[in-house]
Design a protein around this nucleic acid. Structure first.
Lengths: 340, 340
DNA sequence: GACTGGCACTCACCCGTACGGAGTGCCAGG
DNA sequence: CCTGGCACTCCGTACGGGTGAGTGCCAGTC
């Protein structure tokens, strides 16, 4: 039903519409692309494409516009992700390499993404629960006050001061420190939290009450997921290019950008660090955002998905370019985090 | 020259224009306000006001619109800041009281401010250099690694791990800890940094080299002013109400909102925690933002200006309401920070 | 002298109409 | 199966007159 030439026509329509923002007609199409057929033939193909819901007419006797379904087909069947040029790669890595800590990496990424795609960029902070334990430190501040420090694979430092019901000996602390590190090193935080819970069995009966408090604090530090909800948004100024369809598409988007929980849902679950997800129009899980698309990707060191980043923009966007940009930034951010 | 009735006319024009967004004419004015005179008289006053540059006509035979100078006069001479009603106060304090830490206070404030004023709200994080030392802690992690913890009056915790060139004795650390705290407690950070520098003299010759490294890290923690540049923006969705004058006023504003340095300059120096500053149109230090006004105030515990917060909006805004809101939020945020 | 009512004038805005252009669907012929 | 031709639809724009809100000015009144 959808033969090669119809696909070519759809591709041409999508490309023209994205660049001109205007419904595209059969005549203009054959002029700008080398389809090798006459406008009349293109019209027939268009009628067929419309029949199947890939394109639509804003009104009778107007050109055609791709539908969500049309973009979907375009993205699925026709986007051969171009790899970036060497200068582009170099620009990205030099931009990210200057980062001094995790926060800085995230900030730079969001800027970079916004700049490259000319869309609104969203970067989720590396999820605590997906990162692993690099080091656990117990520090005696006073006989009954202990400082618990957790350093994760992404370089994040979490710390807690614990007030103990009874004093603990340095010996016990040293013992615990050693046990904790061997038990949790390299583990993901949720599993590490379980291991920590199990350690209570190895403690002398007399100290259990005190140690339980201490371990409790540590488990809490492990499972503190406030950072899961943190995202950074950038490139809002690119919204200005939305222009006319203001109240319809822009207002809800601006509202969504303030609700970080919404944004996280938009980005979706990070599945695989190398897979770019594209959600188009109605596929986006918010009705108000039915005129927007989301292009997202997981990212993380060594292809291990730590968190998600992506962009939000009008359904009418340059998918090949955007997908390439998101994929590239995700990859380089992953790399930058590993080097930390 | 500008007698009472002319002021009344100006006030009426400002109020009507703010609420209707349309040039206001003499007839409509006498209908909606009780000025006690006829339209013709109002017209004469209007001509005088226009002569002096307080109002202007978009085109001949149109109503009048306040100029920047007109708003300025309105704000200076006619805004009697209404105090908030008891329910309003209660709402504010209950909203802020739920905050758990400094970050949370700032986040809640920005939301509150955006909601109350229906404008874009900006809150600067409490400036480190203006807060005081609550506690300094030195913790031995291993013979040659020391953890330095600084807790400020606003509840912010800064920490550094210092690698020492040589091991230090617990005794020396205990001594330093005591000296540090007596020397810096309650001091503002910049002064505290100086005191710390002076301490080196009291240290035995043999330890100086090592201690210098340690004190250096502490001074750095004291003077780390990254937080000075941190601001939080909220209520961007309120920009949608700008509506028509899109590219002229909105795009530059959206761009400015991404540049935190620009925002800090917009908010201006916090002078006094109780003084609300109003910058109107061309008074704003950026040409692109000549269609916007900024209402800002310092805030801090006990009236001591720690940092600044405020809103940005169109010159056509409800100044009395906005000023009241900014003042109130600044006051309550200051209080909320003291309670931490 | 200050205020008022009246009057002529000026524009922006809102139609209704007309028209050109781009685009479509359909059909007959190669 | 493709193509050229043709009639039709409808958007966008331009033009023109009518309407209404608003102004400035002036002569009259308290």
């Amino acid at each position: 039903m959808v033969d090669d030439r119809k696909l070519a026509v759809l591709r041409a329509i999508v490309e023209d519409y994205v660049s001109t923002r205007e419904p595209v007609g059969s005549k203009a199409l054959v002029e700008r692309h080398t389809l090798g057929v006459s406008p009349a033939t293109v019209r027939n193909d268009m009628a067929a494409l419309e029949e199947e819901g890939f394109i639509a007419q804003p009104h009778t006797s107007a050109g055609r516009v791709p539908t969500d379904k049309g973009y979907r087909l375009f993205v699925d069947r026709m986007v051969s992700v171009r790899s970036l040029t060497t200068p582009e790669r170099r620009a990205i890595s030099s931009f990210l390499d200057g980062a001094v800590d995790v926060d800085d990496v995230v900030q730079r990424s969001v800027r970079l993404l916004a700049q490259m795609t000319r869309q609104v960029a969203i970067v989720q902070y590396p999820t605590l629960s997906r990162s692993t334990v690099r080091h656990v430190e117990l520090v005696v501040m006073s006989p009954s006050r202990l400082l618990v420090v957790l350093i994760t694979s992404t370089g994040r430092v979490e710390q807690r001061v614990v007030e103990l019901p009874e004093p603990v000996s340095d010996l016990l602390v040293a013992d615990l420190r050693a046990r904790l590190n061997t038990a949790t090193l390299g583990q993901r935080l949720p599993e590490a939290a379980e291991r920590v819970g199990e350690l209570i069995g190895a403690v002398p009966e007399a100290d259990r009450r005190t140690v339980a408090v201490l371990l409790g604090a540590l488990v809490e530090a492990f499972s503190d997921d406030r950072s899961d909800e943190r995202v950074l948004v950038g490139g809002t100024a690119n919204l200005a290019r939305f222009g006319a369809d203001f109240d319809r598409s822009m207002r809800p988007l601006l509202e969504a950008l303030e609700e970080h929980v919404v944004l996280l849902k938009l980005l979706g679950e990070a599945t695989d660090a190398s897979a770019v997800t594209v959600r188009i129009g109605a596929e986006v899980p918010y009705e108000e955002l039915s005129a927007t698309s989301v292009v997202a990707s997981g990212y993380g060191p060594e292809g291990d998905a730590l968190a998600t980043l992506g962009i939000v923009g009008p359904t009418r966007m340059d998918y090949p370019g955007t997908i390439a940009a998101v994929r590239a930034v995700a990859r380089y951010v992953g790399r930058a985090l590993t080097d930390e």
